[in-house]
C-alpha cells in the first residue's frame, strides 16, 4: 500500500494543477478557442483518473475497449448531431427552417 501512495498523490497534484489551469484559462480572452482548451484539459484530467485512479493501466484490453467504445459512440452522437445544426443553412440560407 505504501508503494501506491506516492504515484497516486502525484496524480492528484497533477489533477489540481490542471484544474487551476482550466479555471485560469477561462478568464483569458481566448474567444472561440476557449471551449477547445477547456475540453482538452478536461480530457487530460479524465485520462489521469481513468489510467491511474481506476487502475486501467493494469487491466486487459476488454475493459479498456468497453470504455473506449462508450467514448467513440458518444463522439458519433455529438458530431453528427452538431453537423446537422452547423450545415442547416449552409449555402442556402433558411432552406429548411
Amino acid at each position: 500500500m505504501r508503494s501506491e501512495l506516492r504515484p497516486l498523490a502525484l496524480v492528484y497534484l497533477g489533477l489540481l494543477a490542471l484544474l487551476a489551469l482550466t479555471v485560469a484559462g477561462s478568464f483569458l480572452p481566448l474567444g472561440h478557442a476557449s471551449p477547445a482548451v477547456s475540453f482538452g484539459i478536461a480530457m487530460a484530467k479524465a485520462l489521469l483518473i481513468v489510467w491511474f485512479f481506476m487502475g486501467f493501466r493494469r487491466e486487459g484490453w476488454a475493459v479498456r475497449l468497453a470504455v473506449l467504445a462508450g467514448l467513440v459512440w458518444l463522439t458519433i452522437l455529438l458530431s453528427l448531431t452538431l453537423l446537422d445544426l452547423l450545415t442547416r443553412n449552409w449555402l442556402m440560407p433558411h432552406f429548411g427552417t
Binding site: W73, I76, L80, L83, D84, L85, L86, T87, R88, N89, W90, M92, F95, G96, T97
Partner: peptide, 22 residues
C-alpha cells in the same frame, strides 16, 4: 447501424447536406 439514424428525418427540415451523408 449507428450512423444512419437521420434517414428518419429527411423531410423534417434537417440540414440537407447531413441528409445526403445519412
Amino acid at each position: 447501424g449507428f450512423l444512419v439514424w437521420a434517414h428518419h428525418m429527411f423531410v423534417s427540415g434537417m440540414s440537407m447536406y447531413v441528409g445526403a451523408v445519412f
